[in-house]
Design a protein around this nucleic acid. Structure first.
Lengths: 213, 213
DNA sequence: GCTCCTCTAGATAGAACGTTCTACTTGTGA
DNA sequence: TCACAAGTAGAACGTTCTATCTAGAGGAGC
């Protein structure tokens, strides 16, 4: 009888940590609270994560990042086209926010903001996760017909809108920002698709200008 | 000889707290560190802020919010038109990020994410500040020619893009997200301006539909 | 001179923190 | 049956946390 259910202790710890970190932040969450919430003995934390809190948070961020990526892939796979995929993802985010009383948003944003300037290890973890998301979105955008060199900036913009919408929705305790940002993200996607008339797949055209800094 | 300079102790405390809170978050910043950084005796913290850490953070958030609003008004006042104002503000944000080694971004975002689900008093403070910014941006948008009922959602989107850009730039330690998001925000603004050909001021037209949830 | 008030100054308390430690239980393979 | 590894369980350590407390410096008004 290891716990209340048959979920392994390590997974219970990861899951509870993910919930607490994303809601309360890294510094605001104590290991004792994690152990209690995970119904795990305190010693098990250090058994599974000898590196302590930092190693645990690193694992939580990367696991959460993979999970969120899979969620996106699932939504994108089910949608008929790319703009719809983006809209659906925002709609799902709004639903989750409302269902969890505006607690569950981005799995890494809170920790990312907190540790960007103070905890290099965790900053790197969040950066890796963000990059993995950007890669996936940019790939889908280009496959949908966005010019190759526009894929990355579009992905960055869409992710930024999503993260901003998460923050504003949680602070204002309203899905209004998420709704407004869904429209904005869709508009950005459609504008990018309209930039090149009908480039199918990876057709490369010589661009005369680059707008990057 | 109260301190190193002739800045009053209360202001030194507020300033140091603002710096530390936005970089390390609320839970990640100790009162002792604030006292040290502000070159203030520990007792002075509780003299000026009898409500303790929470009251101090509340004051910091609202003061920082007013300061950031004034900064926006200054940039907007100096710009020839609204899209330029938005672009200029993003450019300034990118400059500040780089100058402070990606530490100084939004004055309230880190605390907002951290306390949205745990500290109702501070959540309300961040919400009030966000609202004050949204009001200002929406007003300028409408004055620039954006249809009245589109002002608010546009302001929300632009602020969300900015906040997302702050987060991504800090995590990735790069101004690339800020640059990409400047383009995106400008595109959103220009699209909103193009929605109504030449509605000057508060010309109201009957809308057939509402897209809000 | 004296009192009041503001602010400085830091010691101290009690709880919570992350971490380390030892002891116990259980399951597996020799 | 024994040995060993994996995981459980929580006490204990030193540090840091927020908050409270007392004491005194300095100026203003009477």
């Amino acid at each position: 009888m290891p716990g209340a259910t048959d979920i392994p202790t390590r997974d219970r710890i990861l899951y509870a940590s993910a919930e607490l970190f994303r809601r309360q932040g890294y510094a605001g969450t104590g290991l004792k609270q994690i152990a209690t919430e995970a119904r795990a003995p305190f010693g098990s934390l250090y058994h599974f994560f000898p590196g302590g809190k930092e190693q645990l948070a690193d694992a939580v961020l990367r696991t959460g990042g993979r999970f969120f990526l899979a969620l996106y892939e699932a939504v994108a796979g089910a949608a008929p086209d790319f703009p719809t995929a983006v809209r659906d993802f925002f709609a799902g985010a709004a639903q989750t926010l409302e269902a969890t009383d505006f607690a569950d948003a981005c799995p890494i944003a809170t920790v990312a903001g907190e540790t960007a300037s103070t905890h290099e290890v965790l900053r790197q973890a969040t950066a890796d996760v963000f990059e993995s998301w950007l890669t996936a979105v940019a790939r889908d955008a280009v496959e949908a017909g966005v010019p190759a060199e526009r894929g990355r900036p579009l992905a960055v913009s869409v992710l930024a809108v999503l993260e901003g919408a998460f923050l504003l929705s949680r602070s204002l305790r309203s899905t209004e920002p998420m709704a407004a940002c869904a429209d904005a993200a869709a508009a950005l996607v459609e504008a990018a698709l309209a930039e090149e008339p009908a480039a199918q797949g990876t057709t490369k055209l010589p661009m005369t200008q680059e707008t990057t800094t």
